[in-house]
Each structure stands twice: as C-alpha cells, then as structure tokens.
Design a protein around this nucleic acid. Structure first.
Lengths: 340, 340
DNA sequence: GTCATAGGAGTAAACGTTTACGTTGTATTC
DNA sequence: GAATACAACGTAAACGTTTACTCCTATGAC
C-alpha cells in the first residue's frame, strides 16, 4: 500500500515507485547529471503517472531562495499603480518569479507590517513603488538583506537603485509645450505639496519654465491636490475661482487632469477652446478622456518591467544595479489649443 | 562565537542565547503553554535583541499552510480588476494572508502555468476572477485540493462557490431604466459574444426588457465588443453607422460606455442630449467621465472582500462556502436624459 | 592482471520550524 | 511518606527537498 495515499505525492513516492533513491529523482528533476537514460525515462514516466509536483516550500527552505518578490504600492487599485504592476507581473512571471502585492495605503504601520511579512515569507527581493523610502523602512530592508529597487521614486540618502523620469524636466517640458503653443496664463494643479518625489520637482519644473520664458509666476495660479481625481476636482474649483484668466492648466497627474476636464465641463468651459490642459502619466485614462488628453508619457508599464529586470539581476548575480532615468515624451492629443 | 553570524538568526540562535531548548522558544513564539513567566521574558528579550524573525517557509513546510492565496485575473491592469484586487488584498492582509497576483491574459497556457506555480508554492487557496473556469483548470484545481472561489464568474458544472451579480437581471434593470425614461430606440454595446458569464446573460437581459415593454428587438442595434475601451470605440462607430436612430445605448461595461462617450463626442453628438448612455460596473472611471456616467453598480471592491472571506473560511474551517448573488443598483449620474 | 577512472547510483545531513512524547522537580493529597 | 498531578521544560522526529560524500561496477590503459 501507498503509505501516502491522501496527500499530494512527494519525491519519495516517485523514488519508491521508480525503484531509485530520492537523490536520483532530484537529479532528473533539476536535470543534473548522474543517471542513465533508462532511469530518466522511468522516473519521468512515474512523475507523469502519479502527477507529482515539486514542493517549492521545501525547495525554498534548503535553497534559501523562494522565486518570489514583493511589491509595495501606496494604492494598488489606482490606475497609476495598475500599469506598473502589470509590467512587474509580466516580467516576473516570464522569469519564473511570483509576486506578492502589498497595499501600504501610505501608512507607516501597514508598511512595516508588510515588510515583516515579506521577510518572514523570505521573498528574494522587493520593489517599492511611488513612495518615499523612509529611513524606518530602509533599516528593515537592510536587516532583511534582500535587494530593493524603487520605481517612480528615489532615495537620496541610500544607494538603492531607482527608476523614474526626470520629474522636473518632464514638468518643464509640459509647461514649455503650453508656452510654445502661445499660452502665457498657465496655472498648475500640483500633486502633494510636501512630496519631494513627484510633488515638489514638478512645480519646480513649472516655475522654471515660466522663468525661462519671462512669464511671471503667480501665487494664485498654483493649487495643490494629492494626485487623485477627487482632490483634482477641488483644486480645479479653486482655480476657476481664483484664476479665471488662465488659458491653460498643467496637471501633475492624469487623474487630476481628468478632474480638470470634468469640472471644466461642469462649469460650461470648453476644452480646449476655453482652456487648454496637459496631464502627466499617460494612463489609459488619458486616451479615454473626452476630449483625449494631451499628456506627458512616462511609460509606467516599461518602468515596471525594467524595475523587475534590475531586481532579478541583483538577486541572481548578487550585484547592485544602477539607476535609470526613464525618457519621457509628450503625447499630443486634443486638449491643448494653439493660441494665435 | 556565533556560528551563524552572517545569516539571519534562527530559532536556534534564540534558544542558545536564552539557554532554553528550541521547543520552548517555539512555544513562546506561538504562545502556547508550558513555560514560566521568567523564561518568557528572557526569550522575548533575546528575540528583540538579535532581531529574530520566524521563517515562514520552514513553518509552511511543517504546517502545510502558507498563509498565502493566489488570485488569477485575465488582466491585472484593467480598471475592472483593480477594484477587485484592492478588496481582496485588503481583506487578506487583515487576516494575515498574502496574495500572489497572476495575470492570465485569458490565455490557457499561461493560466495552466500559473496553476502549477501556485501549486508548487503551496498556496492555501485560489480566487479566480472574471474568467470561465475551464474544465482543464478545474482538474488541476481538484488535484491541488485547495479551496477555490470565483468572483464575477461562475461554473455550472462544478460546485465552486462564486460571487457575482445577477447579470441578466442587472442588464434588464439598466435597459428598463432607459425605457422608463422614455426611450424606445435602445441599442446595446455588448461584451464578448461567446462569453457565457458576462456576455450572453447581459444581452438576454437587454432582449427581455425590450420584450416585456413591447419594443421590437432590432439586429442592427446590437453590436459586440470585448468589454474594453478600444473595442468599445469600434462598436460605437458601427452603431453610429447602422443605428443612427437610437436614442439610448446600454453598454455592457463602463470602459465601453466611456468609449461610447468618446466616439459620440468625436462625432459631435451631445450626451445626453443627442443620445443617452448607461454603463455597467460603476468603476471610478464612471465618476470621472464627462459627463459623469450613469451605470449599474456591482460593488467590485466588496465582491473582492467577500470572495476572500469565503475563501479563508473554507481554508480554515475545511468547509465549503455557499455562493452569493451580489445586489446591484443603478447609480444615476448625467448620461441619461428623460425623453418627454 | 592490475590500476586508475568515471559513470551511475545511494546515504545521510541539512534547511528552520512544530509537536508528540518523555523527563524532571515540586506541590498537593491522603 | 507514598502516590498523584501538573508545570516546566528537553529530545527528537517530521515536513520535502538538495547536495556533499561514498560506494560499486564496468571500462580502458598499461
């Protein structure tokens, strides 16, 4: 009788039925050398026969590698994260890694909990997306001794590889685009005021572009949101109140740009006739907007892939990857009008 | 000397430093009984001191439980999946489970590969989202002997618990809503023609509503997409060609409804003045549309949570959960006009 | 015929836990 | 004072793999 009838078959079961040792089965499984063709056939046949599947947990225990990575998002369900995740997932899967998704809610407590869970589960590496790498996190990460890469973020004090676009330059280019289309009254719906990653640099780019073209910066032209649609709406309402002369708006995220579109429509403002809008991200959402949104593309999907590539490289070659500044470009659609 | 200086500390290290056996450490770790207060303090102190973290892999090997679930999506980055994933992730995390995301691309090969990976990694359960549970999959699932729950899907031949809205009824209600607003020329942008889950039932609901109100069904009023924005655009173009008399459109997904909005705008058609539109899903996208989209809400986030709840229940109590028909409701926004 | 060699295979330790079982010592009961 | 009970531990097996060693046998060189 099979002493192990109800459970999933193990390497032992295969060994017994094939009349070989488990070492031999392991060898053919990992196709190493050290067995005859005949044994190989026999073993492989038994494996098919009883439907044996290796146990990655046991494997992980001895190999100290789990073929698993963890990915931390401030908000998994945001349309922004979705693209990055897609890239990560795809690359990881193609290279035989699985991915744990973690939703931090931008909450320190939650993040720390996740970090501990990922550590317990022995992930081989971690990707941190669009979030500040707080020192608190970094310490745990160091204790874990696993590679980390940042995507759409950056850590100044630590030598963690990152992938992001040059936010200041990208913002500059967006605003310059508006200027070159004849606009001089340009407002901005910024991201989080204190965000050193995606908030501040983009307003810096905005301000610099204005400066370079001799356009005075006006306080009332700059309002803050937190990158989301809802706050984008509030911000746009403010703009309509305080900056009715603006002919163009630069929004620091597509979600907020779409919010601008939405409240503009609510107020009977035509886009781009009454007001031009340029976004930032190039989400699918931008294509779907009415009218289709002109925006700066940051290839989130590719960033996800690239980040995963770097991470896996670090895992497998025990090296440290370099950072990369992702190229950006403006994709012209229909929300910016040329002023004559 | 610590013989284990460079690696992460293990339970053995704790035991040695605390002058107790590993069994005792294990006991305080899992707070069982069988040790004195003094020992407990000592052990806990050492744990803090050397920063010990249990190894979930080793734990998983012996417990045959990994506190991990797998989630399969046809497309992780779709705005539809994002909401479900968010719900799943949240509930899972709150109950100390981690989640592996899998992107099947609706591809059988990929799906099977994933199923095998999930099996190897010994997940405790699997959630299948918005996809047919093919017999091929079901067989593997059975071999794995892990609980499965379906969300926004359903399997007739197998007793797998599912969570979904009554698609036919929801579609019926949507169309009825249009009818009660005075529309009689109602077109439909359907989902995938062969999709028995979300495709066919929704057109059945559409047809039935027309019937019940004595409105003749017209072939040219029904076009097919695959739930996505891109195909929604193509579908809408067809409708404008073939059914210019339609005063209202029921789209089988919000993405397609937004596509309807987009191409309508492109053709100079005003929403809802020239044409009314009702969607299906109630994604954030619906709120963001211009004008905001009237649609049928299916509470995807809650469905994700509920599915995970059922799954964990099945895992922990070795029971089989029942299915639930999720309530739906129409959320009125601004894309449906009352015909006088 | 002897020796070295290499191919083909088995043995057993190790990975980091949990847990059934055994042992010791002390307090309680009569 | 013997019997009992229980608290407070320790021992060792087990989970399913991988892999360093070891062993045997056949082959070929000389």
């Amino acid at each position: 009788m099979n002493p192990n009838a109800s459970n999933n078959p193990t390497i032992k079961d295969v060994a017994r039925k094939a009349n070989v040792s488990i070492a031999t089965v392991s060898r053919v499984l990992n196709n190493l050398s050290g067995y005859s063709d005949k044994t190989e056939q026999k073993v492989k046949q038994i494996i098919k026969e009883i439907g044996y599947q290796p146990n990655a947990i046991a494997r992980g225990l001895i190999n100290k590698r789990t073929q698993t990575i963890g990915v931390m998002f401030p908000n998994v369900s945001s349309y922004f994260s979705a693209d990055i995740l897609h890239g990560i997932e795809e690359y990881a899967n193609d290279h035989n890694y699985s991915v744990f998704v973690c939703n931090t809610d931008e909450d320190g407590k939650r993040t720390m909990k996740y970090l501990h869970v990922l550590r317990e589960k022995q992930v081989d590496g971690i990707i941190f997306s669009s979030e500040m790498l707080k020192e608190e996190y970094y310490e745990v990460l160091q204790a874990m001794k696993v590679p980390v890469v940042l995507v759409s973020s950056k850590a100044d004090y630590a030598s963690v590889p990152y992938i992001k676009v040059d936010d200041k330059q990208a913002a500059y280019d967006a605003v310059q685009y508006l200027i070159l289309h004849g606009h001089r009254e340009i407002a901005m719906v910024s991201g989080t005021e204190t965000d050193t990653m995606a908030g501040i640099p983009r307003v810096e780019g905005y301000v610099k572009a204005l400066q370079d073209y001799g356009i005075p910066f006006k306080e009332n032209y700059l309002v803050y949101g937190n990158f989301t649609f809802d706050e984008g709406c509030i911000a746009m309402e403010k703009l309509i109140q305080n900056a009715p002369e603006a002919t163009a708006i630069f929004a620091a995220s597509d979600e907020m740009a779409v919010a601008v579109l939405a409240v503009a429509a609510k107020h009977g403002l035509k886009i781009p006739d009454d007001i031009s809008v340029i976004g930032y991200d190039n989400l699918k959402l931008a294509e779907m907007a009415v009218p289709p949104l002109t925006t700066v593309d940051q290839r989130l999907y590719d960033m996800g892939k690239l980040a995963t590539g770097k991470l896996i490289d670090m895992i497998e070659n025990h090296c440290v990857a370099d950072s990369t500044i992702m190229p950006h470009r403006i994709v012209e659609r229909q929300t910016v009008r040329r002023l004559t």
